[in-house]
């Protein structure tokens, strides 16, 4: 029923987001080197949908996710969440807004405080933000736990007694208990076994259906992203290379990097042999990325113009944007 109310507006708008990390803190020279972890990316997410963010490790996915939630200061750009510009909001106000945007972490072991029982991990912030009246606190937490597939007697247990999958459920319950609108999922599956991954994906999908959450789903597993997302963004060295509807990206990948990425996914069928694009060369250092198109050192269709000019992210079909000189830039 929540889903019926979803209108077409965007819950999150990221405009020209930049996050640079200085390379060394005690650099003597004035013009310090920076790792451009996120370098000018823009995208929007519709309410109640899931956007997948894929890319190689170190390409800035986590940094993008954390910058959006203002978990650290950003170097430039704007994040507009639900009509409010998060980059301008005061710390106190931001803290009060936090319950609305949550995060699920990659490592189920280090993301739960080892000295707190599960009930407290999930409920601490619920109490602090007074999400429910005091009298209903207990039953509310238990309800959330049941929704996330945790048994009520786990309430008093400590994280060390749980397996990776159960810990990830606790982590999800902690986010869900705050009644958020938007959840950043930073590779929530990569530390889990295949059979447990399916349980967690189903749980996340069910919760989305029930409560209309919006997800930003970060992953390097393309098959999972294909399954769970509505739109997909492909990142490479801090920049968005291709972005659009899931169908369009998977059926008609335009960017050479996306093509390589898609062809590299191993297929679970011994009779299907993919015509694989093997990228030669390694990922360049993010401290000094190649000039022009960042992908040109590994691109098979690299042209002369690619070294000179940075390709702009342009829309070629409806809801399908690509940054590559192979397609007309004007």
């Amino acid at each position: 029923m929540e889903k019926a109310k979803i209108d077409n507006d965007y819950i999150l708008e990221v405009k020209n987001l930049k996050k640079y990390y200085p390379v060394s803190r005690f650099s003597i020279s004035k013009n310090r080197a920076y790792v451009k972890a996120v370098d000018d990316i823009s995208f929007k997410i519709k309410r109640g949908t899931t956007m997948g963010l894929v890319g190689e490790s170190g390409c800035g996915k986590t940094t993008a996710g954390r910058s959006i939630l203002r978990l650290h200061d950003i170097t430039g750009g704007q994040v507009v969440f639900d009509g409010k510009d998060l980059s301008k909001i005061s710390p106190g106000k931001l803290r009060r807004m936090r319950p609305q945007m949550q995060m699920i972490f990659q490592d189920p072991y280090s993301s739960l405080s080892p000295r707190m029982p599960v009930g407290e991990i999930i409920g601490e912030a619920v109490r602090e933000h007074r999400i429910v009246p005091k009298s209903q606190y207990r039953s509310y937490i238990l309800k959330v736990m049941r929704d996330c597939g945790l048994q009520p007697q786990y309430f008093y247990r400590y994280p060390h007694e749980f397996s990776g999958g159960q810990r990830q459920r606790i982590s999800i319950a902690r986010a869900v208990a705050l009644n958020p609108k938007f959840i950043v999922c930073d590779e929530p599956l990569s530390a889990l076994d295949v059979s447990i991954q399916a349980q967690i994906i189903n749980l996340m999908k069910d919760l989305q259906e029930q409560y209309g959450y919006t997800y930003l789903f970060i992953s390097h597993d393309l098959s999972v992203v294909e399954y769970i997302s509505d739109t997909i963004g492909v990142m490479y060295l801090g920049s968005m290379m291709e972005m659009g509807d899931k169908k369009r990206i998977f059926e008609n990948p335009m960017h050479p990097y996306t093509k390589a990425l898609l062809s590299a996914v191993p297929i679970s069928d011994p009779d299907v042999k993919m015509n694989r694009i093997i990228l030669s060369g390694d990922i360049p250092s993010p401290v000094n990325p190649p000039s022009g198109c960042k992908f040109r050192t590994r691109c098979q269709s690299c042209m002369e113009v690619c070294a000179r000019k940075v390709p702009k992210l342009k829309e070629y079909e409806e809801g399908h944007m690509v940054a590559c000189h192979l397609y007309s830039q004007d």
Binding site: L71, L94, R96, S111, L112, A125, S171
Partner: peptide, 19 residues
């Protein structure tokens, strides 16, 4: 990561330090 998780849930600094 659990410290970052505590930040995302928006609990106050005092509680973050003491809990």
């Amino acid at each position: 990561e659990y410290m970052m998780a505590a930040t995302t849930t928006g609990i106050s600094s005092i509680h973050k330090i003491f809990r």
